[in-house]
Design a protein around this nucleic acid. Structure first.
Lengths: 109, 109
DNA sequence: AGATAGTACTTGGCAATACATAGTAGTATT
DNA sequence: AATACTACTATGTATTGCCAAGTACTATCT
């Protein structure tokens, strides 16, 4: 039990939520997503992100298309499916409930 | 991938934080803790709580004493250790950073 | 044309926790 | 003594973030 470990535990489920949030605003490929997360100070590397994107795609929450790049190989651009959009709404609710619960516990005296 | 499952994932790490928060205010035994969590709409059953209390005790974040009850068997009253108190401060920071990151991602347009 | 660097993506295994479920044991009541 | 209530224990499962190494495509340089 150390704080780095618990930080990783706290990200479970939340990372998926963040990715769906990011993709609800614009389509993006992996490097875009990593940068958005980094701007919000949520540091994620490719080895974490790609498996999660694959899982979300397999669960039909995301789809992707290939797009050429002028700077290297083609890129997978991800977007939310309709199923992904409604799932995101449910996650939004879950996250609100969780943060509300923690807030309530935190301020009780 | 269903929302109940992701809710459970989101609780990973957070439940520990909540328990330490509750115990930072008053000593409590398991049933007290379950009730505090329930008031904050975080429903937890004994089969989840006891193993976690044991883990926290084994990590020296908590200690306990037995106390007689007039209503049944004796009860284990838990309290934070000094180590638990400083760990809680670190978790506080982690939680703030996580919720801030999610907030930032959520409001970006 | 071949070598190198940069970019994008894949894969498999590990660690850790919430949860479920079944169980044991002490105490109070009938 | 039997039953109900209360408190706690134990074990295995499911799931996800993480790690690290890898493959492959493209651009650039020699």
């Amino acid at each position: 039990m150390n704080v780095e470990n618990t930080k990783a535990q706290m990200r479970k489920g939340v990372l998926e939520y963040c990715i769906l949030l990011i993709l609800s605003k614009n389509d993006a490929y992996a490097s875009d997503i990593i940068n958005h997360l980094k701007e919000a100070r949520m540091i994620v590397v490719e080895g974490t992100l790609y498996p999660l994107l694959t899982r979300l795609k397999n669960a039909e929450l995301l789809s992707y298309r290939w797009e050429e790049s002028t700077q290297g190989p083609p890129r997978k651009y991800y977007e939310l499916t309709d199923k992904g959009k409604s799932f995101l709404q449910e996650l939004d609710t879950s996250w609100s409930e969780l943060t509300s619960a923690v807030g309530q516990i935190n301020q009780r005296n």
